[in-house]
């Protein structure tokens, strides 16, 4: 009996188990426990939430291994961590720590402005951000086992996540409507491998789980993304930058499960206190838009 680790199936399968759930950014063990108690399906361990990275500026990097290990010790749910785009050594370090998923993330400062990490060589699975279908398929071609919309992290403004989910969904629906002999040109236009384009055209969905991220701050935001076809939700700054993190976290989990029931979302939205202050994406100068990182 041979046991094989690190296959595409166990990597993609891990993401299947997270569906219908909320993954929360946490910066220490205490926050990780609050997230777990609130019903998070996983936590993302990082030193600064995107809102702080945005406010403080500078180069944002992989977190301190000590901090990641403290979070791993504090909770029983999966622990994810972020590596810089193209920084395969940060990814090797995170794999050696036994993190359950690596987010090759535009929230950190990219290490390589041309190439992403070759993710096939790793045992640990990767999630990558995308703003459109071509970008999602390029990441999957590099070995990503899960995709998330980029949105605009650290803003509390859901409009970019919405735009990315509509774009990805719309491009998938368009592929499904094409004749087989039109898929070659579609692949050229999407700048994505033909085999993946053909697969999406046939199945009407991405070959991996699609979550949403970037600017989700309220239970209604989470439900909105689920109704746009997201399989689940990442919430970054939205929880621990709000007035009552524990209650807001639990409320977002509820709204993600009952995304199609406005009464449940209404109940979950009551008395949550102050949401994160937020920044309108339109007010951000272009060089400060994280979603434009990655290619």
């Amino acid at each position: 009996m041979s046991e094989v680790t690190g296959t595409a199936r166990v990597k993609r399968g891990m993401a299947e188990m997270l569906k219908g759930g909320v993954i929360m950014d946490v910066v220490n063990a205490e926050q990780a426990k609050i997230a777990e108690d609130a019903g998070a399906v996983a936590v993302m361990a990082l030193e600064r939430v995107p809102a702080d990275i945005r406010a403080q500026g500078g180069v944002a990097r992989m977190s301190d291994p000590d901090m990641i290990e403290k979070i791993q010790a504090a909770v029983s749910i999966p622990v994810m961590a972020k590596a810089r785009i193209g920084h395969f050594v940060e990814a090797q370090v995170l794999q050696s720590l036994g993190v359950d998923y690596i987010d090759e993330s535009e929230v950190l400062t990219p290490a390589d402005y041309e190439n992403h990490i070759d993710k096939w060589g790793f045992t640990v699975p990767f999630v990558c951000g995308a703003t459109n279908l071509g970008e999602a398929l390029r990441r999957i071609n590099e070995g990503a086992a899960m995709i998330r919309s980029k949105g605009e992290a650290g803003t509390g403004d859901v409009s970019n996540a919405m735009q990315h989910m509509r774009k990805i969904g719309g491009e998938i629906r368009r592929l499904s409507s094409l004749r087989e002999d039109e898929l070659y040109v579609a692949a050229k236009e999407l700048q994505a491998p033909y085999a993946l384009v053909k697969e999406v055209s046939e199945t009407g969905k991405l070959p991996v789980v699609l979550f949403t991220a970037g600017g989700i701050a309220t239970p209604a935001d989470a439900a909105l993304m689920m109704s746009m076809g997201a399989d689940g939700v990442f919430i970054g700054s939205g929880i621990f930058k709000s007035g009552n993190p524990a209650q807001r976290a639990a409320a977002c989990v509820k709204a993600t499960t009952f995304w199609d029931d406005a009464k449940v979302i209404a109940d979950a939205s009551r008395g949550l206190g102050e949401a994160m202050v937020g920044i309108n994406v339109a007010d951000l100068p272009a060089p400060h838009r994280l979603a434009e990182r990655g290619w």
């Binding site: 046991e3 094989v4 399968g13 993190v99 359950d100 045992t123 640990v124």
Partner: peptide, 16 residues
């Protein structure tokens, strides 16, 4: 026992 086979890097497939 939860997560008895380990973390995600230990996840595996096998014929049994």
């Amino acid at each position: 026992r939860r997560n008895a086979f380990g973390r995600q890097v230990d996840s595996f497939e096998s014929d049994i």
